[in-house]
Design a protein around this nucleic acid. Structure first.
Lengths: 292, 292
DNA sequence: CGGGGGCGATACCCGGCGGGTATCGGTCTA
DNA sequence: TAGACCGATACCCGCCGGGTATCGCCCCCG
């Protein structure tokens, strides 16, 4: 099975329409039909049910869609990691823009003070993007925030755990309170919670605005369009017009440094070791040694 | 990047010799040279250092070898799982030949008594093979034995934990003892421990014989060529000429049922649920629902 | 010191396959 | 019932992956 065939199949399986899939792939429809038919012949399985007026996935089709996506992701990661291994040494670290600023500064300072530092490029991301970049091999390590991100399939090291605060428009009745509970915030009909992107980039349904980054977030709070519940460290990047009140019963947020478990780069090992030394933490969740 | 290119590169990287790699791939050497050169051009990286008289991997080459192997494994798994999803329903369960026999029987009986059973094919494996078959998508589930196998990247459910016994040639001085310690066994110069295959199928160095399956193992013990430390349940498949003595300080063996975390097949979910119900166990390590 | 052998790269050719356009057959809709 | 929509088929072309022959280089050996 060639990756080209997989790309074609995934496109059709996602569009459920040969014409659209072909357009998305930048080819004509007939070669696409032929390629899928050939793939089905080679696998000895029907992948798509064509009942004129549309296309549906068979059981095998569902399986191949899922497996094919992971294969294509692995291929993209392989390309990116190989390409970057050929570049002059240097680490790329992904972090959510406008979050964990002090922690990030402390980590980078401590790493730069090591005996053998390499240049560290910072890749500031929108919500949830770090995890994707890490899995795609576009970055060497990422600062993730549990429980929003997941470390599944990654090695990670816990750096810091903190409580949560509510961001409210200044002057809002609740803004004067010494502390809040989630239920009180949920009861505000005209001040909905924001909607954050899911793992695949789509947004859940609901009344709140769709959020991509922190500046957008604090602006919408200041404008009185929503409230938000963020980690305490969000205090450091406050803007006028936004009030902050601790939330007692929101689950705490843990900032972790995560990296590819298969990585064997010495600079990455240095960064991880620095993180362990600076932030103590609950012991490493994986090991890095030697190499490239 | 096409899987063909990856297969070619992995072959060259493993052989470190274009001619041999080409022979292994069943093509001539020049197209192989050209394909690798083209891959390097597309990635913008040198993968191999050719200094006449041989080939060596560069840093990027090492990375691509590692990544490429995982990609090719993922592709093989995708093909196998898709193909099997197209077959009439049925589960394939991998188990070590001659191990966990009673447990296996109990599991299969209980599953067959469910309201919605499908036929279960049993795939009896040599040591360590189950894990590979599972990861390759050739089977739906496997009985693994911790700490010999690893459940990394798999979902699993603990079924049973048991102590260890030593297998000794009947008539051996230690065979009459009520119990033993590992140190006593290690001190037997003419009765070495067997060597079991590693994850990649190779064997560690050492004095003992290389072991592939349990019949071979008990035969070698009976012939006085080695001793072995096995789970208690090995008693059930004893042969004449072999004595069994409990070992007090060997780490216990846990039998787990493992499966692909991404699997969504209803029959597999039924098998897992059966395992949970029959063996109680420490709660599931993953969830299975719905589908194909 | 010169020739031969081993190895990867290059040159060149051919056939198949991936891509294109044109068109068909079937079905739903206006 | 005509037309639109959609996937399959027919057919053609150019490129690329595969082949053979040969080169260039280096090492080794006589």
């Amino acid at each position: 099975m060639e990756t080209r065939e997989l790309r074609y199949f995934v496109a059709v399986a996602e569009e459920l329409h040969f014409g659209r899939a072909a357009r998305r792939l930048g080819i004509a429809q007939p070669p696409l039909s032929r390629a899928i038919a050939q793939l089905e012949r080679r696998l000895g399985t029907v992948l798509l049910e064509r009942d004129s007026r549309g296309v549906a996935l068979t059981g095998s089709g569902h399986v191949l869609l899922r497996e094919g996506r992971t294969v294509l992701a692995a291929v993209a990661a392989a390309e990116a990691r190989t390409r970057r291994a050929g570049q002059p040494p240097g680490l790329v670290l992904a972090a959510k823009a406008g979050a964990s600023t002090e922690l990030l500064a402390a980590l980078l300072d401590a790493y730069a003070a090591r005996p053998d530092p390499v240049p560290v490029d910072l890749r500031l991301c929108r919500f949830g993007e770090q995890s994707r970049l890490l899995r795609e091999g576009a970055v060497d390590a990422a600062l993730l925030h549990l429980p929003f991100d997941t470390t599944e399939g990654l090695d990670s090291e816990e750096l810091h755990t903190e409580g949560r605060v509510a961001l409210l428009p200044a002057g809002h009745p609740l803004a004067a309170r010494p502390a809040l509970r989630l239920a009180e915030l949920a009861a505000l009909p005209h001040l909905p919670a924001p909607r954050f992107p899911r793992r695949d980039g789509s947004y859940p349904d609901g009344p709140g605005p769709e959020i991509r980054d922190t500046t957008q977030l604090s602006q919408l709070v200041a404008l009185g369009r929503m409230h938000a519940v963020l980690p305490e460290s969000a205090r450091s990047q406050l803007r006028p017009g936004v009030a902050v009140v601790p939330v007692l019963d929101a689950p705490p947020v843990t900032t972790v440094l995560a990296w590819d478990p298969a990585a064997r780069s010495r600079p990455l090992a240095g960064l991880v070791r620095t993180a362990v030394e600076v932030f103590g933490g609950g012991g490493p969740n994986g090991v890095v040694v030697d190499g490239s």
